[in-house]
């Protein structure tokens, strides 16, 4: 082989190696992105399954509330679910229903957001203070409460528990107490929680160009068509909470015919390996729409 032949073959080999390495690099990038998006999709699908299962079990003999503590805080969804429920923290505690709560908490460990889901057991005949996931009253006592009592003794109490969770939840946990709090963690890396509801009415029934469903509630997203207040909703949306730029919609067993038809939960999953979206963030938005009790 002459020197020229050698140089030609080396040049050809170099081109091949470069082309192949380029394919390998691009494939590696694609696989990394694909893994991240698949992980994100799988997490969203799992959250969707839990939310749908919970909302299907909703009991109109109890209550349903969408609220937030202050103008800048994240929304909370609180509702009663029917069926035998066992405590995740106390082997001896069980009840005929549960008070299920969704919200967003801060992760005291790595930062970011935690999707908070706490299912509190409504334990009948349990005459002791609220402990972990067991409430000191049962479904029967909850049904006997008036709307005003539910405002204060249920919704306000849960809002307080949410604030406590937001200052204590830590993933990954560093102490045994933090490990014992993990029953409240549905998913990590979640933010941008919005909770809205619809009664099936359209935005403007007289306008044939605006026949979209009207969603009420707490949605910071600028894209959504949300009308947070309507005069004839005063028996649902509490006007007193509007004074503090907060929001509270409450449905109780006093009127079971005005309950919403569907609830929409929107959230964002952030992962450093995801592609950059239009906001410049590495995240994906998801939306779960579920009917009440169906």
């Amino acid at each position: 082989m002459t020197l020229v032949e050698m140089l030609v073959s080396i040049a050809v080999l170099a081109v091949m190696v470069l082309a192949f390495s380029s394919i390998m690099v691009q494939s590696e990038q694609f696989v990394s992105l694909a893994q991240s998006s698949r992980r994100s999709h799988a997490l969203a699908a799992a959250i969707g399954r839990v939310v749908r299962r919970d909302l299907r079990r909703i009991s109109q003999n109890g209550c349903l509330a969408i609220t937030r503590a202050s103008a800048n805080s994240t929304p909370l969804l609180i509702f009663t679910a029917a069926g035998a429920t066992y405590s995740a923290t106390d082997a001896n505690a069980c009840g005929t229903g549960s008070l299920v709560c969704y919200g967003q908490c801060n992760n005291q460990g790595t930062g970011g957001g935690i999707l908070w889901r706490a299912a509190y057991v409504l334990a009948d005949n349990r005459n002791q203070a609220q402990e972990k996931d067991v409430l000191p009253f049962g479904m029967t006592q909850l049904q006997a409460k008036t709307r005003a009592q539910i405002h204060t003794s249920v919704v306000d109490a849960i809002a307080t528990l949410h604030q406590r969770a937001s200052s204590s939840l830590q993933v990954p946990p560093t102490t045994l107490d933090r490990v014992n709090d993990l029953w409240q963690v549905l998913a990590t890396g979640c933010s941008g929680l919005s909770i809205t509801w619809t009664d099936g009415r359209v935005a403007d029934a007289d306008n044939p160009n605006d026949l979209n469903l009207n969603w009420y509630g707490i949605d910071p997203s600028p894209q959504a068509a949300v009308n947070p207040r309507r005069a004839d909703l005063e028996d649902i949306e509490d006007p007193n909470n509007y004074g503090g730029a907060s929001y509270r919609a409450l449905w109780t067993n006093e009127n079971q015919r005005n309950w919403p038809r569907a609830i929409k939960i929107r959230f964002r999953i952030t992962n450093v390996n995801l592609p950059v979206d239009y906001r410049g963030a590495r995240s994906m938005d998801y939306e779960v729409i579920a009917n009440i009790g169906r």
Binding site: A44, A45, G48, R52, T198, G200, V202, L213, R261, A262, Y286, E287, V288, I289, A290, N291, R294
Partner: peptide
Amino acid sequence: SMIAENAIAVIKAR
């Protein structure tokens, strides 16, 4: 799956 489940919920509501 996500679109279809959301679609059925919207259909039921609307």
